[in-house]
């Protein structure tokens, strides 16, 4: 009985308690945000630009510290969290393998093991055979896959993605979405995915977090109860369209209200 309970209640991997963070100029980027992320979840954070969703991610990564409140992460050692940025941010002077093994190099792993694990990570994202290619020789989608391989190379438990597919065309983007879901489903990863696309958020996530701007606050959370693997059946289902437009209405309401209220 108690065992069954433990299985049913997912353990938290990260938690925000009343976290406030200001920009350098003093403007409030995040205002008393509380949020829990549980093991195995795929959480999307959606909101207009300026709602602090990227700030939330960099706090979660430990790259910045909160001005008030507490950020807690279960796996706090370097390499236990992976991050994918808006751009692929590959080192242009190094080949794909050297780029992917960078995290291991920085963590001081032995060289031979680094190369082997980099090749494994490349195979997982379908880039085997491109180990010696230079970043400029790859397409945008392939560069992003290399960036994902780099984030996965340390076998992290938590993967943070900051609008990773924003610059890609729609076809590539949908293919990348499915690939990411495959990786997530096959590895027991927990993902936190920042995007401004509700379409992407609803399609990918177990839970969608809506944020509102100035100051950045969490406005609503929605569970998405559609079984994985999702694929075209979900994209074509009325419930997908319905949830997407309902969330879209909420986002728009919130984008309008504060400006209307604060107007002259």
């Amino acid at each position: 009985m108690s065992d069954a309970d433990r299985v049913k209640v997912p353990r938290p991997v990260a938690r925000f308690d009343d976290v406030t963070r200001r920009f350098d100029g003093g403007l409030v980027a995040l205002d008393r945000v509380s949020l829990s992320v549980h093991e195995g979840e795929f959480v999307s954070v959606v909101g207009p630009s300026g709602c602090g969703k990227s700030t939330l991610l960099s706090l979660l990564a430990g790259l910045t510290a909160p001005d008030a409140g507490r950020v807690w992460r279960r796996d706090a050692r370097p390499g236990e969290v992976g991050m994918v940025f808006q751009e692929a941010t590959l080192m242009p002077w190094a080949d794909v393998r050297a780029n992917v093994m960078l995290p291991l190099t920085l963590l001081g792993e032995p060289r031979g093991a680094c190369a082997r694990r980099a090749d494994e990570a490349l195979a997982r994202v379908g880039l085997d055979g491109f180990a010696h290619a230079r970043p400029f020789e790859l397409s945008g989608g392939m560069r992003m896959r290399a960036a994902i391989a780099r984030a996965l190379v340390t076998r992290p438990r938590l993967l943070l993605l900051d609008e990773p597919f924003g610059a890609l065309d729609e076809m590539t983007r949908e293919a990348m979405n499915d690939q990411l879901l495959d990786l997530w489903a096959s590895s027991g990863l927990t993902c936190v995915f920042v995007t401004h696309s509700l379409y992407e958020a609803v399609y990918l996530s177990t839970r969608v977090v809506l944020m509102s701007p100035r100051p950045g606050r969490i406005q609503a959370e929605h569970r998405v109860d559609w079984p994985y693997p999702r694929g075209e059946a979900f994209r074509a289902d009325p419930s997908f369209t319905h949830l997407r437009s309902a969330l879209s209405v909420r986002l728009r309401e919130d984008a309008v209200t504060p400006e209307g209220g604060a107007g002259p």
Partner: peptide
């Protein structure tokens, strides 16, 4: 690239590593 600097910090890179590799 600020993204690459963030990446180096994420993996706890030291100043020497950042200089030499980045």
């Amino acid at each position: 690239d600020p993204g690459l600097r963030a990446l180096f910090r994420l993996y706890g890179a030291g100043a020497w590593q950042e200089l030499r590799l980045l």
